[in-house]
């Protein structure tokens, strides 16, 4: 059974939302001091969780049809988004090694897509 394109798009969208959620979690975690009780009062963490829930809903809709062996590897695209957010919002350096990793992951996703038949 071939995996429908819509399923792949849903999983890719889920990875996108999830990486935004992770960005908010990181931004929120940076402000974490003073103990666990502040965890629930942290606005950025709350936004991060909302994005994660949204991402999970899209992911579940995505894996409903098609092959998990095609759809799950697509989640690795979230590493790419994470690199982009890290560069834009956290001013992390973009190194040659990161570029190499990024290209390999994209190539891998391409191969998994080619294997979808």
């Amino acid at each position: 059974m071939k995996t429908p394109v819509e399923s792949m798009v849903l999983v890719l969208a889920a990875s996108f939302l999830g990486s935004i959620g992770a960005g908010f979690l990181k931004a929120g975690a940076a402000k974490l001091h003073g103990g666990l009780r502040y965890l629930f009062l942290n606005f950025k963490l709350a936004i991060g969780v909302v994005f994660f829930v949204g991402s999970s809903v899209l992911y579940v809709l995505g894996v409903k049809h098609g092959q998990l062996s095609v759809l799950y590897p697509l989640v690795s695209l979230s590493y790419i988004w994470a690199l982009v957010w890290a560069r834009i919002f956290f001013k992390e350096k973009f190194t040659f090694r990161k570029l190499a990793g990024l290209c390999l992951i994209l190539l891998g996703i391409l191969f998994v897509g080619l294997g979808n038949r």
């Binding site: 092959q67 998990l68 062996s69 095609v70 590897p73 690795s76 590493y79 690199l83 090694r97 990161k98 190499a100 990793g101 990024l102 290209c103 390999l104 992951i105 994209l106 190539l107 891998g108 996703i109 391409l110 191969f111 998994v112 897509g113 080619l114 294997g115 979808n116 038949r117």
Partner: peptide, 23 residues
């Protein structure tokens, strides 16, 4: 789920794992 594996899928997974390791 009786997914079908083929060389392209396997190669893709190996390349992704390598990419994550490099990152």
């Amino acid at each position: 789920f009786h997914d079908t594996l083929n060389w392209a899928k396997l190669a893709g997974i190996v390349i992704i794992v390598t990419g994550v390791a490099v990152l």
